[in-house]
Design a protein around this nucleic acid. Structure first.
Lengths: 223, 223
DNA sequence: ACCTGAACACCGTTCAAGT
DNA sequence: ACCTGAACACCGTTCAAGT
């Protein structure tokens, strides 16, 4: 008798199911699509049902940051402990980066709320430990974390995409070259063409590693 | 007869007045307070009146990014052209930073929409020119801009504020020290105490300059 | 214990209408 | 040309009510 339409959720809701669905929704449609109403729909429930399992939307956002941080911790736990602090730190960071490449909405969220995640703190704790074992003083490690900034977690935020501006100008390209001679000169020599390794224009894999190595080499010298 | 209550706006609205009010509102109450309705109220008008002067809210956000970028360009135009590419670039960046210290909401917005601002492009163009004159190839300049990231504009986004987590834990501080021995060890040696120079915990003036110099020194070596 | 419907106070934005 | 009021389609969230 109940064989026809019975779209009740098989499994009951839970904080974990809500967070998993939130991550999946953000992965597929971006952060902007992550509304309480849409999230509930994805789970076959009403928006208000979510509030039994999470306090408020902020709680969901904190939760998915923590979930990504745990994914990072799981990933870095599997990397071979390299010889020397530098390859070890480098490898950890590049491994963390791979997680962000799977969750491209995450950098934006980490910028503002990663301090609430104990998983993020555990990630940093291990990084501090590695550098400590590598002969750094706590003071220099502290400076190093500041110098690395978000790079310690594996991403840099993009700041501008000159290719966009280039597209925008139709025939005024000559005028643009006049106004921005150096930028146009530089960009005419350069091409980015590996979208899969790119978190926005400024976060190309090759460029990420270049910047990372500039900093790690600099820290090495100060050690 | 019209001597009593006549709170009509003296000056008519204009795109410029709208943007100025938007910057002032964000300065005083943060980005979250910047809604079309609140902005109109600030101008003594109705929300819908704004749409005669700006296309949509996105347009307002693009506009205030451009306004801040112009403020930066004005500021850097006044700095003495230093001798050598490094002091010149360094001074430009620290001057740009001062503008962000006046508009603490701006970094968040620049992260996502600075590519739409021609003023930002002009800022970068001058920076590229300085480095070019300093003997850098376009290719290395390009790498350098990636390595600097948002630091080229004078800010780094904060990633975590361990002091917050420290506050949060009341008596479980011992447990925290057990779980995060390295982080707790490091932080016990360190204190941040100049709130005026700080854009969030990770963006202390001293730390900003440390990180900047690590990168500039590294680029110098690659020149 | 877990979920829901109706309702509230907000958003950005459209559109026809006022001066 | 410039501004407005009413209305629409969305938000997050509260609360009393259902099972």
């Amino acid at each position: 008798m109940a064989t026809d339409a019975d779209p009740r959720p098989r499994t009951p809701l839970s904080r974990e199911r809500v967070l998993l669905a939130a991550v999946a929704l953000a992965d597929e449609h971006g952060l902007r699509a992550l509304t309480m109403r849409r999230l509930a729909e994805e789970l076959g429930a009403e928006a208000m049902s979510l509030y039994y399992h999470v306090a408020k939307k902020e709680d969901v956002l904190d939760g998915i940051v923590d979930a990504v941080a745990q994914e990072i911790n799981d990933a870095v736990a599997r990397v071979d402990p390299a010889e020397g602090w530098k390859p070890a730190v480098r490898q950890r960071i590049l491994t963390a980066r791979e997680v962000f490449l799977r969750h491209r909405w995450a950098p934006e969220l980490f910028e503002t709320r990663s301090s609430t995640s104990t998983a993020v703190l555990r990630y940093y704790d291990a990084l501090v430990g590695l550098m400590r074992d590598g002969g750094f003083s706590y003071d220099l490690i502290h400076h190093s974390l500041h110098a690395l900034g978000s790079r310690a977690l594996g991403f840099t935020q993009e700041l501008f995409d000159p290719s966009e501006s280039a597209d925008a100008a139709p025939d005024s390209l000559a005028e643009l070259a006049e106004q921005l001679p150096n930028l146009v000169g530089m960009l005419s020599e350069i091409a980015h063409d590996d979208p899969d390794s790119t978190l926005g224009w400024c976060d190309d894999q090759e460029e990420f590693e270049f910047g990372l190595d500039v900093i790690l080499d600099g820290l090495e010298r100060l050690r």
